[in-house]
Design a protein around this nucleic acid. Sequence first.
DNA 1: TATTTTTGCATCGTGAACGATATAAATATG
DNA 2: CATATTTATATCGTTCACGATGCAAAAATA
Lengths: 147, 147
Amino acid sequence: MTYEQLKLNNQLCFRLYTAARLTVGAYHPYLDPLGITYPQYLVLLVLWEQDKQPVCDIAKRLMLDTNTVTPLLQRMEKSGLLRRTKGKTDTRQRIVSLTEKGSALREQAKHIPECLSANILEKMGSLEELTTLVPALDKLIEGLSER
Amino acid sequence: MTYEQLKLNNQLCFRLYTAARLTVGAYHPYLDPLGITYPQYLVLLVLWEQDKQPVCDIAKRLMLDTNTVTPLLQRMEKSGLLRRTKGKTDTRQRIVSLTEKGSALREQAKHIPECLSANILEKMGSLEELTTLVPALDKLIEGLSER
DNA sequence: TATTTTTGCATCGTGAACGATATAAATATG
DNA sequence: CATATTTATATCGTTCACGATGCAAAAATA
């Protein structure tokens, strides 16, 4: 019995960790001109789908905790992408809503997904294998996220 | 033509990003008792395979830059897991070698991969789908990492 | 050999992630 | 109604990830 399983190349998690890092990196050429980071882009995706959400709903959607999301939102408020107002029914809540600037970015971001697909397609030859990733990742995420 | 592609649920990268986070998180119960983080575990995996490597080789192996790896190694040196000595043939290099403590951790870490597999198996029912991830992730990583 | 370029490592600053902890408001329970 | 618990958010500290930059040693080139 050796240490075979302790070899880096046998580790699924390292692949996920690396693939995620590199994929986020592939967004840089498209997000830099908009002046936003990838996590900020994710927040915008959520708000573009539905504006005016409390912090906890955004956090749930991104599967992050508020201690990650709150500072993220504060930075985004500072850069004028959104506003954080006190909730009316529940005064503990902070309702996050897009500013004009935040809303307008949607139009500029519209083509990012296809740009990225094209980019990856060019580098990989085919997107076939990537689509097979989706259900497996979903199952993994579901398994690891249940309490 | 709508903003369909801008929906969070249609984003592969978000899945990768989330799956990676959650999987790293699944290591916590096993790494915390050893007093190391996941990136530190990765460094140890590399050094356990081959001791006494220059910083750049470790960085290459982990597909990270030295500006990430150097502080990581400095912290690990501080906690007594490794040493960083000046290279003899090439004095620019810093040769990283395991200490007694760093080497000894290997025995304790030996069962982590199978613990994690068992853990995930329990939560997902089957590991079948996960093995299909490996070749797709490898191809993605290769595509995104070429210069 | 002298000069240029590249390489290996380090430092700095910023933005995340996340554990731990705090606080006030809402809700549940006695 | 009073008290206990939960919930929504925030703050703090540590560790990463990474762009930008600096520096000295090695390698390449003139």
